[in-house]
Write a protein that binds this DNA or RNA. Structure first.
Lengths: 210, 210, 210, 210
DNA sequence: CATGAATGAGTATTCATTCAT
DNA sequence: TATGAATGAATACTCATTCAT
């Protein structure tokens, strides 16, 4: 991508030799794509391997198991979410401003970057087992609590109606998480417009003013 | 279903002999449960058979294939949805009243009846292939168009702000479809309260009035 | 084998359909042969399947796993040993007579019946894991204690020199268990002669009398 | 082997650089340990590598293949046996004295040195293939013939009863080779006592004198 | 000499499905 | 209608081994 004036250490054989981190990243990306398109249970490791441009045996130098791969993808999805959304808004003092920023950041993450990893988090929770599931759920709960707290603060400061914070939290989460099910970046609706529309809709509702 | 006044043809051993329709229904219910809990790709036909109280070979007298079974479940899920929601509200003349009734009916279907079949519709779309997928999507699109039309009517009649009907449609669908991911019928929130809260929230937003 | 004037219920297709017990027995016998010839670790389930005249998948209707198969074979080997040796001699009152009978029975079992299962017990202990290993070892120890007791009784009654019963036990066991490593039933030495020679040798030693 | 008076070529980092012979010896010892504990078929080259403190690829600088490694271990086991037993007793003129010395040396080798390589010889013969098997068997047969000859000489000189030399040979071999299956050097029985007990038992039998 | 990466062939096991009974 | 047995194809994963560096 970047115009690399690379020094390219010596040779360049047809089959390039990449380091562990790069290869692993390749596999994770390919797997996220495959799991996203077919579903974890429908996808085979052969397909993941093919999508990674490696052999089945080869990918096992970089990953431990299919389950671990799923967890790794989800964990990375949560990393992305926290980096792009949660970490950027969690310290905004005003709860209303915080909520607006959260909706905008979350919608834009889903519409603009469309990280497959996040889709996997939403779709394949049922496929995750044991400690892996615990770990992901822990992070999801942290975000839920963050939203609940935000709504409570808004209510306490007279900024929001006396709604149930839990209901509001999941209503909002549902609205946004559903986006990847229908939104087409190439379509009529611009991502930034969607973000604003969601802020508007969630804060003000659909009804016309009095 | 059929009014069988038959008093059990001939002998009636401990292992009761059920008619085809009943057996098939049993299998579909068991399969919906299994697909719901484990995911379609993770579930095996052995598990479906076990959950149906039959042998693996036995269930193939009633179903054609695993894929067809999935489609049958989803189709029944759509039947339920249409019977309990769409058919009951589609002819309400006033669009605002129609929207209110839709939200209430949909939320109550998800919270009160909690049909596994509907969860499968939402979770396993990616596992559905070919014509089966087309068929289900056709029915989903019909409902989407219905909602879009309703929002457009509301806007035209000055009942709703000039929001994008498509955005409103998917925002609402997301809010409601997400419920089965977190709502516990045994929990603090009553289903009828949730329905009213959703109506309230979606129509009026979270912000406090002026 | 036996001239069966069987009524042979109706048809006799090329591919005969056998009941579970028979098939399972076939698999166990074939597997014992294969494990014996190649060693457990070297043998593949494909080879076991081929030797059983079934497909790989087919044998899994009758066995649970390769490990379980190994245990089953060993367990049957121990059954055979106990039925043919231990159970027949354990209640003989005179310890000398008991020892003689034990040596004869054990040698004849190894030379005449040559059960592959017993060979597997001796060769593949290292391949057995967990509870399976415990179970087999428990039965081996019972036999060891039986021999030790027998030697102790002989010593107490002045029938044997004051040797260490444990040493005598393992010396005898080694002598006999080693037979399957070299003895050829088609060879010069008759099985009954070997049994007598072993009784003679173990009781009287190799040295010429005074 | 080669008289290396080299005082460590150049720098000497924490990871000491060992010469080929030493490394090879390390691998053989580690492999003998692993094959002994797990069995050849159950052991993987990864485990051998790990036990050698090297990488999988690394050990292939010193060995040719897993099969060759097995043969090498067995061959070394036979070297040990011949050096410690066969070579030391083969020229003793008196056959009785020769037999006594053989039993003592063999028992002590098994109880005192406990060379894993010898255990591998006894346990993994079935895993050995082709020429490798021929080679090891040739050396085993030489020892068998030596024992047979010794017994024959004893009989000819009136020192032994008229037993079958072949039977006596394998009875003795079994007695001794079985030791590694049960003998614990840390246990109650001293190795030198066991050697004497075996001499005594095999020569004189268990029965009390007349 | 040593290694991380890679692989083709193979591992045990499970799959959805069929069929004779 | 029901089933135990059977299977070909696929499953996730491991193997011994090679090779560029």
């Amino acid at each position: 991508m970047k115009s690399t004036q690379v020094t390219e250490t010596s040779k360049a054989p047809s089959r390039e030799r990449l380091d562990h981190a790069t290869r692993t990243a390749q596999i994770y990306q390919a797997a996220a794509r495959v799991f996203c398109e077919q579903g974890f249970g429908q996808a085979s490791m052969s397909e993941v391997a093919a999508a990674s441009g490696m052999t089945k045996a080869g990918i096992y130098h970089h990953i431990g198991s299919k389950d671990e791969l799923l967890y790794g993808i989800m964990s990375y999805g949560m990393d992305l979410f926290e980096e792009m959304v949660y970490d950027r808004v969690k310290n905004i003092p005003d709860p209303l401003e915080r909520l607006r920023a959260t909706i905008r950041a979350h919608v834009l993450l889903v519409t603009r970057d469309r990280p497959k990893e996040l889709t996997v988090v939403l779709n394949e929770t049922v496929a995750l087992k044991g400690d892996y599931l615990q770990e992901i759920n822990k992070r999801r709960r942290r975000y839920v609590r963050f939203l609940e707290r935000t709504f409570q603060e808004m209510i306490d400061q007279g900024l929001a109606r006396s709604i149930d914070p839990r209901v509001a939290t999941f209503a909002l989460a549902g609205m946004i998480n559903w986006i990847y099910q229908w939104y087409q970046p190439s379509g009529r609706i611009k991502d930034s417009d969607l973000a604003e529309a969601y802020v508007d809709l969630f804060l003000g509702g659909v009804l016309a003013g009095p």
